[in-house]
Computed example of a mutant assay.
Amino acid sequence: MPGPQKPLHLCCLLWAHADTAEALTRYEDTVLGLLPGHGGAVLSRVIGDGHGGTPHEVQILRIADRGALDAYLADPRRVALADERDRVIARTEVFDVDVRTGGPAT
């Protein structure tokens, strides 16, 4: 019998279209609010200025498994906001990460 699946940890980098950084943040406020209903949580969320090609927002997310991630991505409330997402987000990069806290062991 297989053991329990480890949760996924994702890093999400977001770049805004010109003059839409505040709208990107509002959009993310809304869609990230849907995560808990799918077994997910925001572990870290930082917002930058986007200057020099850096992302406007960086998120570290935890979600139960791929099925939960798929359900979150297909959530009708999130899908209904696709036009807003396209309007405010120029680029997104999402990749799996291994979350570690603290410094090296001494």
Rank of each mutant, 00 (worst) to 15 (best):
L34I: 15
G48M: 02
R87F: 15
T25H: 13
C11G: 12
R45L: 15
H17L: 07
P2V: 13
R26Y: 01
A64G: 07
D83F: 07
R26W: 01
D49I: 00
P104C: 12
A82W: 06
V97K: 08
P76W: 10
D98F: 13
G53C: 04
V46E: 03
L69M: 05
R66A: 15
T92S: 12
P4A: 15
A90Y: 14
A64Q: 11
A105M: 12
R78S: 07
G102Q: 11
R85L: 02
I63D: 00
R87G: 05
H38C: 06
V94M: 10
I89K: 11
A64S: 14
V42Q: 04
V46I: 12
R100G: 08
P2R: 13
F95A: 10
G102N: 08
A82I: 07
G102L: 12
H56E: 04
I60L: 12
R26C: 00
R91G: 06
T25N: 05
P104I: 05
P55H: 11
L73Y: 01
I63A: 01
D70I: 00
V79E: 08
R85S: 13
G3P: 09
T20Q: 12
A23S: 09
V31Q: 11
L32S: 10
R100W: 11
L35R: 12
L43N: 05
P4W: 11
R100C: 03
R91E: 06
A64I: 03
F95C: 02
G52C: 05
L24I: 00
E22S: 13
V31K: 09
A16H: 10
D49S: 14
P4C: 03
D49L: 05
V97E: 04
L10A: 06
E84L: 08
P36S: 13
P36H: 12
A16M: 06
G40Q: 05
L32T: 11
P104T: 13
L61R: 03
H9Q: 11
A71K: 00
I47W: 01
L69A: 02
I63K: 00
A68T: 01
D98K: 06
A64F: 04
A90L: 15
C12L: 10
